[in-house]
């Protein structure tokens, strides 16, 4: 008996230093992490705001209300407005197909969904130039039908669609896999139509994950630079989205203009973070209602 208690005591004695690090190490690690966050996350945000307001509120406002800036905002909103609903739909379809059906090539599809994440955005843009550009595969057909894709709004939308495709599907697939299809089968066996099943059973169960995916998709659609930059042609007032407008303004030494536009994107990012945290919290609540 004594031997056993001794053994437990030794085990505890051994465990304590292994689980808690010395004070100096804890402080150092916390310090490094905080310093890093301050330097690389908070400082740039502060610089954006300081620079944007460097010449006062009036200059900031007039920079934002310039026709070019307004048109960039409009184009960014348009792009998001088209791509987000489409990718929500595609994401739902892909997640449904992957989690509810058995078919050959399923794991290939699962890998392909991640392709936009693994390819450099510049390459993604280039793909569309190679397809629809003047010398591209479909270039002649497109120009023969008087459709402008590259250096025009359709190209920007296509490139953004490609880039933001994985967000919704990626959120939904693990959740729907975990849920299984029994509740859906139960709904069908009770006489529900496929639509009733989807809107009354599936959707309520996946809504938080879906909203989360849509939110991330939207943030990326509004913020995408690389792919859009390749296909847009940087035509002021026509094919400049907000991120491109920031670059163009900066290159033309219009610092207030650049930072004013950047402040909108930064605000969007902060808003996304707040919404994201809220959604995560709601999702947590939803999973453990008791």
């Amino acid at each position: 008996m004594n031997a056993v208690t001794d053994l437990i005591k030794t085990a505890e004695a051994v465990k304590r230093p292994a689980l808690t690090d010395p004070v100096w190490l804890r402080r150092a690690l916390t310090g490094i992490a905080l310093g890093f966050i301050l330097l690389f996350l908070c400082l740039p945000l502060a610089v954006v705001l300081i620079e944007a307001f460097a010449k006062g509120w009036a200059t900031y406002w007039s920079a934002l209300t310039q026709p070019d800036t307004l048109s960039a905002i409009r184009l960014t909103l348009l792009t998001a407005l088209v791509t987000v609903p489409l990718n929500t739909l595609f994401g739902l379809c892909a997640a449904w197909a992957i989690t509810r059906f058995q078919f050959p090539g399923k794991s290939l599809l699962l890998t392909l969904i991640d392709l936009p994440f693994s390819v450099s955005p510049v390459i993604s843009g280039l793909i569309f130039v190679l397809i629809f550009g003047a010398q591209g595969w479909l270039g002649e057909w497109v120009s023969a039908h008087n459709i402008k894709v590259i250096y025009a709004v359709p190209g920007i939308i296509l490139a953004t669609l490609f880039i933001t495709f994985p967000f919704v599907a990626r959120e939904l697939i693990p959740l729907m896999q975990e849920m299984g299809s029994q509740e859906e089968e139960a709904a069908l066996s009770l006489g529900a139509s496929s639509w009733q099943m989807f809107f009354q059973i599936t959707l309520p169960n996946i809504k938080w994950a879906l909203l989360y995916g849509v939110l991330l998709c939207n943030a990326r659609a509004m913020g995408e630079f690389g792919a859009v930059s390749v296909v847009s042609g940087h035509i002021r007032g026509l094919t400049n989205t907000l991120p491109l407008h920031v670059e163009v303004s900066y290159n033309e030494y219009d610092f207030v203009g650049a930072f004013a536009s950047a402040s909108i994107l930064a605000g969007l990012a902060l808003l996304t973070l707040v919404l994201k945290t809220t959604l995560e919290w709601l999702q947590q609540q939803n999973r453990s209602p008791t």
Binding site: Q182, E185, A186, S189, I201, P204, N205
Partner: peptide, 11 residues
């Protein structure tokens, strides 16, 4: 149909 793990609508 009564499912093995009941499949009650959780929401």
């Amino acid at each position: 149909f009564v499912f093995q793990h009941y499949a009650l609508f959780r929401h």
